[in-house]
């Protein structure tokens, strides 16, 4: 009733489908801008296409953010938790790194042209 070829066919369908789905849904979601908010105020926006190091000084708090190969990570932070430093680098639109004690929020934006055109 069910041949070996059927099982191979099903496996191929699932594999190709999953790859296609993975590729298509994540392909264009990479953001192109990093938006840093400190103490609830906009600190600055930075392009993800340039590798750079950003130091954020707010009162006694310091955070160092590094943009490298289109990914953003928190290099160091003057907080006790260090959760933000341990977090994996972010690169996709909508992803965030939050340093709660220092009230610093890193957010990836852009990646969709229509959205950029409206927000700029």
């Amino acid at each position: 009733m069910i041949k070996k070829a059927d099982i191979v066919l099903t496996a191929v369908l699932i594999t190709v489908g999953l790859l296609l789905s993975f590729f298509l849904s994540f392909h264009d979601s990479t953001g192109d801008e990093l938006r840093i908010t400190a103490d609830g105020q906009l600190f600055g926006t930075y392009s993800l296409y340039e590798d750079q190091t950003i130091d954020i000084h707010k009162g006694t708090h310091t955070n160092r953010v590094i943009i490298q190969d289109g990914e953003v990570r928190m290099e160091s932070a003057s907080c006790n938790g260090q959760d933000c430093v341990r977090q994996h680098p972010v690169s996709k639109s909508g992803e965030t790194i939050v340093c709660l004690p220092n009230r610093v929020v890193l957010e990836i934006t852009g990646g969709e042209k229509a959205y950029d055109a409206i927000s700029k």
Partner: peptide, 9 residues
């Protein structure tokens, strides 16, 4: 392929 395989595809 059997009818089942064709149907799955």
């Amino acid at each position: 392929f059997s009818v089942t395989g064709v149907s799955i595809a």
